[in-house]
């Protein structure tokens, strides 16, 4: 035989494993489930339920932090003003004495 005939013999098609079709069909069922509109809607709803409450909680937490920063800033200004007023009162008292 020549090389080309030998190659044809060596590369003769081989049958797929006996459970090949069953495995492919099983995998297509999984794909089908994920392509159904009802499945996609349920997945979207689950994702929304999973994502929205933590997002809301995070926003609330951010607002609380902002409020805390504002309060600290206001208290700091008030403290400075009070010290300034106290110094003026002490100076006036000394002048009178």
């Amino acid at each position: 035989m020549n090389l080309e005939d030998d190659l044809r013999a060596a590369l003769r098609r081989e049958p797929a494993p006996p459970d090949f079709t069953a495995k492919v069909m099983r995998r297509t069922r999984v794909v089908s489930i994920w392509h159904r509109p009802v499945t996609l809607a349920i997945a979207a709803a689950i994702a929304a339920v999973a994502i929205l409450p933590p997002a809301y909680e995070y926003r609330q937490h951010q607002r609380a932090l902002e409020a805390k920063d504002q309060l600290i800033a206001a208290l700091s200004i008030t403290q400075t003003q009070l010290q300034h007023t106290k110094q003026k009162l002490l100076q006036n008292t000394r002048h009178r004495q």
Binding site: R13, E14, A16, P17, F20, T21, V24, M25
Partner: peptide, 17 residues
């Protein structure tokens, strides 16, 4: 699809092998 798998599984599997 099932028929396409039956008709071509040997072709595809042998090529990959």
């Amino acid at each position: 699809f099932a028929q396409a798998v039956a008709d071509n599984q040997s072709l595809v599997f042998s090529f990959a092998l």
